[in-house]
Design a binder for these strands. Structure first.
Lengths: 191, 191
DNA sequence: ATTGTTAATTGACCTAGATCAAGGACTCTC
DNA sequence: GAGAGTCCTTGATCTAGGTCAATTAACAAT
């Protein structure tokens, strides 16, 4: 996992192995049970998680308890309160283990100090921000242009094998529809 | 305008005046009539615009001709086919002058070469990507959580004085509702 | 095995916003 | 000042998806 991430970093921004090791000093391994909340609402936004195995998600719920999921992440992917860190605010969206997971966690401050020290890391930081931006643009497009059904198709395409590990009501919360609506949509598909 | 942008760049990333001038060599001033399309669908994505006066927008339309606006920009703000440049694809969203405008235009390649040359520019590039990301996250939140009416309130808050210069049907296309729906919403407000 | 808990399913009904169609109001231009 | 565009307004009707309520299925935990 660690190795795979380094390879990407090397390719994106010529990160050296020495630098990566300096960075990885801050890594802490951990595990979480299905459903466990790793970062709750209104807490301090400090850490980024890397999924080693399992599925994690970033979600919140409104005043009526309705859930909204921003993203699911699987093995080799990162997630965390990125926007809250950037805007220096308390967390709005929680981080949760969707399934039993193993993860690596590091403080974003460590990444920041790498960026301050090495221009290549600044570049890596830019690439990451750009990638996240592109992801959000795609999402904006889907939310604006597509029907619930078409968003579901996109979901399948994007998440592939991960999709099966995610409970239906959480998928609904990603698509911004009710669990009942998703259920009916699926029923009609089969017929 | 140029001066104001430099000040921001200086503050965000310690850009020096010499560097800024090197960058600004690529600036070309221009004007556009109300409604004029500066970058159409399916063209090569190369340039970024800086609004000097007036209002510009980034929009597209689906197969039925329905419009979708991603963003409006006013004086001192930038817009362009950012995601298309980053993903090296042909433009999906067009750039249009909403009102009579004056603008500066520069090739993104110039910005890229500044980033390759100076670490501070890499940092500036990161800050810009992060800012754009935060904007999209806000938008994702609004599209997922808020009703058309609440999105309209957010629109007023975000765009302030610019709002008055934008035709109603274009505002509707930002909120992802039909012009008729926005009109009714406004009528009910007044009553 | 039995009970408690969480998730999925189904039905009945409701509502925000879409769509279609037809007028008005305002600008321009000649 | 008469058309010709645009844009805005209003009415009638439709529909995707929401909400509420009840049932069943799946899974854990004792």
């Amino acid at each position: 996992m660690n190795v795979q991430l380094f390879e990407t970093a090397k390719q994106d921004a010529d990160i050296t192995l020495e630098q990566w090791e300096e960075f990885a000093q801050s890594f802490v391994m951990g595990q979480a049970q299905k459903g466990e909340i790793l970062l709750g609402h209104d807490q301090e936004a400090k850490y980024i998680w890397i999924v080693v195995s399992g599925v994690m998600r970033n979600f919140d719920n409104d005043s009526k308890g309705k859930e909204y999921t921003k993203v699911f992440r699987g093995p080799g992917e990162m997630l965390g309160p990125y926007s809250e860190i950037l805007s220096r605010s308390k967390t709005r969206y929680s981080i949760q283990a969707v399934t039993q997971t193993t993860f690596i966690r590091f403080p974003y401050a460590q990444f920041e100090s790498m960026m301050a020290k090495y221009p290549q890391w600044e570049r890596l930081g830019r690439k990451i921000a750009e990638k996240n931006f592109l992801e959000k643009e795609k999402r904006e497009y889907e939310l604006m242009h597509l029907s619930a059904e078409d968003r579901y198709q996109e979901f399948l395409k994007q998440y592939g094998a991960l999709a099966e590990q995610i409970p239906q009501y959480q998928v609904a919360s990603l698509l911004a529809i009710s669990p009942e609506a998703l259920n009916r949509l699926l029923k009609n598909k089969k017929a």
